[in-house]
Simulated assay, not measured.
Amino acid sequence: MTTFFFHVALTQMLMCALLLSATCHRSTPIKLFILLMFCGSGYLLSTVYASVENNTLLWWLGHMGGNALPGVFWLVSISVFGEQKFIKPWQYVVASLTLAVPLTAKLFELLFAVSLSQYEAIHGLIKYGALLLELVLIGHALFISAVQWRNDLVQDRRYIRGGVITAAGFYIIMVIILEQLLQIEWQGLAYFKGLLLAMLTTAVNYVLFQLKSASLFDIPEKPVSIQRKVSVESKEIQKILQSMEQDKLYRQDGLTIAGLSKHLSIHEYKLRNLINGELCYRNFNDFLNYYRIAEVSEQLTQNDFKTTPVLTLALESGFRSLSSFNKAFKVKHGITPTEYRKKHVFNDEPT
């Protein structure tokens, strides 16, 4: 029965990767999710085929897939659930370490015909250092999912965060601790792992292909002009835009979607759908930051504010810190607020 569950999980992963491959050109998160499925499939190969000998092709696929899985899982989490729209090069490097470190150690042993276990200090550093990195990455992925859960406007993605991704993260942590760290050998553990993994992969496929899978990975952006046209057709959209453009509620410190829902007398579920489906914002912070950045950008071009510190403008617009403001501003304009101010103010002064 245990082998049956692992076969089910393996089949589900391969099917998921195959079905998503037709849309992999649309975004990086989809490609990473496919890679995650292949890593999981590689990990399962050594479990499904228990008689696989060391250093054979199947063994290498299982070894590489299992070690790469935590890093890829982290990349999937920050690309789908994080606030940033693009993964930075250093994040790819960090994620690759979960595979690079044990792979380098294994290749070293093969090339020089030695066993690193003979050198306890080096072996312990590599083994426990790699395990610590894996646990940190999985923990950070769960942290991102939890922190951004409330602000996510895509209901399908909130289901993934609240259930499947959290369960998958804890599953990986369980395997790392029980198998690699504590090295527990218990027949019931294998049965439990197989059952849970089969349930997880089935749930992933159900959510992806029954609950509007495209919305989990990317959202088509509409220009601002289209957003303004929508406001003419919907009174609720008018209320939302008025609360931002005229009432400037985005300035409120700690404004949540629940608070805005109460202020506008619009049910929170419907408000999420309106901001996401009609105005095309990825999450609630993106929605607020659009107006915050617009306000500060305008102020930075005016001579009346040229002596006002950037921090003051950022805090008054609703940002909680200068670092979060600088990050959002640079994503929008491609330059820092100081550079933006110099470009627009001092270049316009009479000579």
Score class of each variant (00 low, 15 high):
residue 31 K to I: 06
residue 309 P to T: 08
residue 255 L to E: 06
residue 299 Q to W: 04
residue 167 A to E: 02
residue 293 I to E: 03
residue 299 Q to Y: 06
residue 349 E to W: 05
residue 95 A to K: 03
residue 54 N to A: 15
residue 245 E to A: 10
residue 144 I to F: 02
residue 44 L to Y: 00
residue 94 V to F: 01
residue 273 N to I: 02
residue 116 L to H: 10
residue 106 K to Q: 13
residue 97 L to Q: 07
residue 232 V to N: 09
residue 112 F to C: 09
residue 222 K to Y: 07
residue 27 S to H: 06
residue 328 A to Y: 02
residue 331 V to T: 14
residue 70 P to C: 09
residue 96 S to K: 08
residue 152 D to E: 15
residue 140 H to T: 12
residue 230 V to I: 15
residue 164 V to H: 05
residue 173 I to H: 03
residue 256 T to D: 09
residue 228 R to I: 13
residue 302 Q to R: 10
residue 75 L to D: 03
residue 238 Q to R: 14
residue 66 G to C: 04
residue 119 Y to H: 12
residue 1 M to C: 01
residue 203 A to H: 02
residue 82 G to S: 11
residue 28 T to H: 08
residue 207 V to A: 12
residue 248 K to W: 02
residue 270 K to W: 02
residue 27 S to F: 02
residue 335 I to T: 14
residue 163 G to Q: 05
residue 322 L to M: 12
residue 212 K to N: 15
residue 232 V to F: 11
residue 136 V to G: 04
residue 330 K to H: 11
residue 295 E to T: 12
residue 291 Y to S: 05
residue 30 I to S: 04
residue 204 V to D: 02
residue 54 N to S: 11
residue 120 E to S: 11
residue 329 F to S: 07
residue 134 E to P: 01
residue 88 K to W: 01
residue 294 A to C: 03
residue 128 Y to F: 13
residue 53 E to H: 14
residue 110 L to W: 06
residue 139 G to R: 06
residue 194 G to E: 02
residue 234 S to M: 09
residue 296 V to R: 02
residue 131 L to H: 14
residue 320 R to Q: 15
residue 53 E to F: 04
residue 179 E to P: 01
residue 108 F to R: 05
residue 88 K to R: 13
residue 305 F to L: 01
residue 40 G to Q: 05
residue 8 V to Y: 01
residue 45 L to G: 05
residue 72 V to Q: 01
residue 141 A to R: 05
residue 140 H to Y: 15
residue 72 V to P: 02
residue 150 R to P: 02
residue 316 E to N: 15
residue 105 A to I: 08
residue 242 Q to C: 06
residue 253 D to Y: 10
residue 36 L to P: 00
residue 138 I to D: 05
residue 267 H to I: 10
residue 223 P to Q: 08
residue 46 S to N: 12
residue 278 E to F: 07
residue 230 V to P: 01
residue 192 F to T: 14
residue 174 M to G: 12
residue 79 S to R: 06
residue 155 Q to H: 11
residue 99 L to W: 06
residue 220 P to Q: 09
residue 284 F to T: 10
residue 193 K to G: 04
residue 30 I to W: 00
residue 208 L to W: 04
residue 7 H to C: 14
residue 306 K to E: 11
residue 70 P to V: 07
residue 242 Q to Y: 13
residue 64 M to N: 09
residue 288 L to W: 03
residue 227 Q to P: 00
residue 323 S to V: 13
residue 186 W to A: 15
residue 81 F to E: 04
residue 214 A to I: 09
residue 277 G to S: 13
residue 295 E to L: 10
residue 157 R to N: 12
residue 117 S to K: 13
residue 102 P to K: 10
residue 91 Q to T: 07
residue 20 L to H: 07
residue 328 A to C: 06
residue 332 K to Q: 13
residue 88 K to Q: 13
residue 98 T to R: 05
residue 193 K to D: 09
residue 329 F to I: 10
residue 275 I to H: 04
residue 273 N to C: 07
residue 95 A to D: 03
residue 13 M to K: 10
residue 248 K to M: 11
residue 36 L to W: 09
residue 350 P to K: 09
residue 87 I to M: 05
residue 223 P to E: 13
residue 126 I to H: 05
residue 295 E to Q: 14
residue 236 E to H: 10
residue 103 L to Q: 05
residue 257 I to N: 04
residue 207 V to L: 14
residue 153 L to S: 08
residue 188 G to L: 05
